[in-house]
Design a binder for these strands. Structure first.
Lengths: 246, 246
DNA sequence: CTTAAAAGGTCCTAGGTTCGGACCTCAAAC
DNA sequence: GTTTGAGGTCCGAACCTAGGACCTTTTAAG
């Protein structure tokens, strides 16, 4: 019978929405957002609310705004946001595990449901996402296709709440792959996705779920490397936040 | 790059918070909420915001307000909210499945994590919740102890996001048991909870997860009976929303 | 019967948010 | 240097929120 209720302003909500799109890789470095008036209408908010949101993102280094005929709002290289994010994750060391645990809950069940409910169109979208993974030029684009696969799976699960929650949870992390100092994970990810796809296609819910769990656990390790450095994996067995609340 | 962002006012947020407490059974018919000034402070909002929220709940028939020395805000018998809820669920027939699918994702993984991470204190809390289930006098009180078990499990999972999401998702449904026209589910629930507890105590994550899935699937059937009537179970195989989006 | 106390009910000021719209300014392209 | 497609600025109205002062109702105690 206690606890506190908080409320976001529209401005904050819009900022978070756009930040999540960037985190998930839906829009990446160099991309231009739609013009303010246009985007405001798309989002269903007043222009001033959007402008305030952009201001926040600008201050945080996510976007930069250029005036003039070919101006607009452009996503930066994200160096500062990534550093801030890493610092925050290092400070609150349980945070990564909390988010990843949440993602596992959501995406494993999504995979299970997708295996039971997928349509031909769903499978086609997933195949396309896997295919794009091969032909990706840069790491930034990689992030988008990775996002496409997971989003497609969430969509195939046919659960609105689940899909939204997957997007929200994924938006809390930077997609890791273009941050890693090595490149094997790309091939690894492709294999994981292919295996999950096969299970979903065959309607094998248990396997799809298990593979997804393993896939995200690998992502957890990658995130640890990114945030804590190469020795992050070992540090885990010591006292990495996990047990901090008992 | 589209979609709409919405934002709740504080008032709406507070109303939803209290409504969720009622739905989850944390406060039930006849219970009195703390005095306005006191509750406002507990929630960290201005009194007027709380008052507006109470007004909403009053209009929806969740609470009634009495003035005077021994006055206050009292939870009603909830007849009207339950009817409204049933009507809404009947209209949007996919809604129940959507919520239940979401709950399965959250609570199954909670059960899994709980089996891996539970402390002695967690186990004690769960035992206590099961024990109270036996000694419950009325159906209303049953709802509370049911909520206690599931909350205790979410807490034992040691994931803040998971725990919050479990609460939110449970708050979207009325706990069914005091709505059912028959009483067997109470014993059934006790057995389910006991079995889940055993698995959690033994650290058997797979079993805990599976049992939880079955437990919530039973709840799904009960909800169908409540909303659609006794034939709801059969209707499911026809066209119960589930496939409406492909 | 009167009064004190505990509640909800009402009102006010001040400041923040959001909306929609009008109008200004910059910078690239022609 | 003009055009044009941006972003930048400003305004008034409506609503939300905070926090506090004060009023009214009801019950129980004296």
């Amino acid at each position: 019978m206690n606890r506190v209720v908080t409320s976001m302003t529209l401005t904050q909500g819009v900022a978070e929405h756009i930040r999540n799109l960037i985190h998930r890789g839906e829009v990446g470095p160099g991309d231009r957002l739609p013009a303010e008036r246009e985007l405001a209408e798309q989002l269903g908010v007043a222009r001033i609310s959007l402008r305030e949101a952009i201001k926040i993102l600008q201050d945080d280094g996510y976007v930069e705004v250029r005036r003039g005929a070919h101006g607009g709002t452009f996503v930066t290289e994200l160096h500062r946001p990534v550093e801030n994010w890493r610092a925050r994750m290092r400070e609150q060391s349980g945070e990564i595990d909390d988010i990843v645990d949440f993602r596992i809950a959501l995406e494993c069940h999504s995979a299970r449901l997708a295996a039971q409910r997928r349509t031909r169109a769903d499978l086609a979208a997933l195949r396309s996402a896997i295919k794009n993974l091969d032909q990706v030029d840069g790491r930034a684009a990689f992030r988008l296709t990775d996002s496409q696969f997971h989003s497609g799976l969430a969509r195939a699960a046919r659960s609105i709440r689940l899909e939204n929650a997957v997007h929200t949870a994924r938006g809390e992390l930077f997609s890791p792959h273009d941050l890693l100092p090595f490149v094997e994970p790309i091939e690894e990810t492709r294999n994981d996705h292919q295996a999950i796809y096969d299970a979903v296609r065959d309607g094998d819910a248990d396997t799809a779920e298990t593979l997804m769990r393993e896939h995200i656990e690998r992502a957890r390790e990658q995130l640890r490397v990114i945030v804590f450095g190469a020795q992050g994996t070992e540090r885990r067995s010591r006292s990495n936040g996990r047990q901090r609340r008992g």
